[in-house]
Design a binder for these strands. Structure first.
Lengths: 198, 198
DNA sequence: TCCTGCATAGTCAGCACTGACTAAAGGAGC
DNA sequence: GCTCCTTTAGTCAGTGCTGACTATGCAGGA
């Protein structure tokens, strides 16, 4: 199906995409990722950034162009994307968009063990989640509104729109789940099967 | 906020939960994870299972009980959960349920780069995704129906229900996105800004 | 009787990732 | 002109994870 990528870390895709624009040194890349808020959807730390760029260089997707010593700053290596790198971006992007991947949200694991908790405790923690989700939904909406007010086109906000859709779906799910757990027959059957545990 | 877990891998939570039931050897644990389909929501391979159990033992959440040499099979070490382990399961479970974590779905990264693709190409790949999503939705529904027919209680299917809710939300999102991309003014503005690239 | 394939059970080398550290320059405050 | 904090820029040790490998028993066919 999907052949394994030479550098599977999604951070690598973002790096390649920025280098499509112009050559840059790692620190600059990191700054742009932060500034444009793209780091909200990618697991990003400075050390992993350097690691990933090293891997990209080994794979031949980028090349070290020059080592600049601007005035007196620590020296910075500027990287440029290669032809192979350009190809990789497009191929990877198409495949990520076309094929849903198995994702493993932590919440799903927790849900599969929900029966371990007494019903009232389960309801309590899920209420806390619901409130937290409401907060995130609010935040995301604000971010998007502000961006739109700054004239950012909708196409550059699709990933936020997607995050919002998922958050809202999860919130609906949690709300319904809480209702189900509050039914007296659930409490009863839980007592019968799990009540006598250590 | 959330203090870091000694063994953060979610597979560890599943392992501890099974050991709550009775002591077991690693291979047996793996078999049960597969049989009950819990491996669909956890990143699971045999090697990571052994690694995780080793980590749990170091952390004091499980202890090696005995090394059995049943007839002639390779010897198997049986592990039991400790008091600390029991505590960890409940604490971890509660915190996973109560606090939404930052998840980093690959699709979000891809979406943030959607503007790189020509509109008609974007529409084409997203249509493929939509079809794939429909397939998964169908599969999940079937799995759940079969389980229910076998008398499995709803509480043991919540994680599937959750997966279904997310899949359906994503499908709706993709459908709407395709419609937006098909608008002639998007093609026009894409031509203007991106048309003249390499 | 031998061979092949499959299920059981576990090990390990190599690489990826993270948190913590280094180090120099710029600027604020006194 | 001195001190201290922040920003810029990058390194590295330690640990975690994955794919590929090892090894044994057993069933069934030729």
């Amino acid at each position: 199906m999907e052949r394994r990528r030479r550098v599977p870390n999604p951070l690598a895709l973002a790096v390649l995409a920025w280098l499509l624009w112009e050559p840059m040194h790692p620190y600059e890349l990191g700054r742009r990722l932060k500034q444009t808020g793209k780091d909200r959807h990618i697991r990003y730390t400075r050390s992993s950034l350097y690691m990933v760029i090293e891997q990209l260089a080994r794979a031949g997707f980028v090349t070290a162009q020059e080592t600049v010593r601007d005035s007196a700053r620590p020296e910075r290596t500027v990287y440029a994307i290669t032809e192979e790198g350009r190809h990789e971006v497009h191929d990877w992007l198409r495949s990520l968009l076309a094929q849903p991947r198995e994702e493993y949200p932590h919440f799903a694991v927790a849900l599969s063990l929900l029966s371990l908790l007494p019903p009232d405790e389960a309801v309590e923690v899920l209420r806390r989640r619901s409130a937290a989700l409401a907060g995130r939904i609010e935040e995301t909406r604000t971010t998007m509104d502000e961006a739109r007010a700054d004239g950012v086109a909708w196409i550059f906000l699709v990933e936020e729109q997607y995050a919002l859709a998922l958050l809202e779906a999860e919130r609906r799910f949690v709300t319904e789940l809480i209702e189900s757990l509050k039914q007296p027959d659930y409490a009863k059957s839980w007592q019968e099967t799990m009540g006598g545990r250590a």
